[in-house]
Nucleic acid binder design. Structure first.
Ligand SMILES: [Mn+2]
Ligand SMILES: [Mn+2]
Ligand SMILES: [Zn+2]
Ligand SMILES: [Zn+2]
Lengths: 144, 144
DNA sequence: CTCCTATTGCAATTCAATTTCAATAATAAT
DNA sequence: ATTATTATTGAAATTGAATTGCAATAGGAG
């Protein structure tokens, strides 16, 4: 594992921005443990580690971390956005349980074909896709 | 067109709730013209028609209109939720232009197969899926 | 018509997200 | 090293979608 700090540093430099310890802390925290996360979770974990970083700085940096391809929007739930690491991981989609919140990742190769065909039919230049399947997980479907 | 008011009325009655003119106004407005919409758009259109309904009532009723299957969440954009009519329409997904906001609907039959297979492999009971393809529309892709 | 209480409009509130601002510090220039 | 420039920060204020409290109203059962 690794490379994400370097990717981010060169991205920042190329944009004429500045590398700061706060930025490195955020990247390090995301890639230490967080697969899916939200801003408050990230903030609380940084705080627990002794970081003095503010939420404002996290909010300000997330768009940059997305732009350089390290993370992306995952889903909107409970009135706020959830993100996920994508650097070093293959593209995947999510099954989400609407009862317990469990998230299962899956990869499906057919999806790429659909994307290609639909884009062609509608003359779109695709940047990304996001397939979210919602329902009840194995545990929750028996309790409904 | 037609049927949505009746569907909503019997849904409301079955729940032991009350049918009100405000609720009927909202349903009527949604099904008069709005395919995709957000709360403010709905509110402004109702106001323009002379309705005295409050935004609070719209916000309070949307979960009920979703629950009875007339509309559903479509996507989250510009810091607020966008909805769409589903009653009387077939299931479909969206291509969305990240430059001009254009939305194109499409139907793909393969998607159902993916859904079924993925659900089986992960022991999920699927309720819904949402495939959003983002990119540049025909006009915008030439301007990038 | 009467009663019960769901629903409403309005205003206050919540909270994720953004922005303002003065202090700080990263980087380039000297 | 020192200095100059200005991007970045934390703290606090602000925004705006969405929710909630409350008193007045009105749906609908009996
Ligand atoms: Mn994921
Ligand atoms: Mn649609
Ligand atoms: Zn579950
Ligand atoms: Zn476009």
């Amino acid at each position: 594992m690794g490379g994400e700090i370097e990717v981010f540093r060169s991205f920042i430099s190329k944009k004429g921005l500045r590398n700061t310890p706060e930025r490195e802390e955020i990247i390090a925290e995301i890639f230490s443990d967080h697969n899916h996360f939200d801003v408050d979770e990230l903030y609380q974990c940084l705080k627990a580690r002794g970081s003095k970083i503010s939420k404002a700085s996290i909010y300000r940096n997330i768009p940059l971390i997305i732009e350089c391809g390290l993370i992306r929007d995952a889903w909107f739930e409970d009135r706020h956005m959830h993100y996920e690491r994508i650097y070093g991981r293959g593209h995947h989609c999510h099954l989400r349980c609407i009862r317990c919140g469990k998230v299962v990742e899956f990869v499906d190769n057919q999806l790429k074909d659909i994307e290609t065909r639909v884009a062609l039919e509608n003359d779109f230049h695709v940047i990304d896709h996001r397939l979210d399947i919602t329902g009840y997980c194995s545990k929750c479907k028996t309790m409904e």
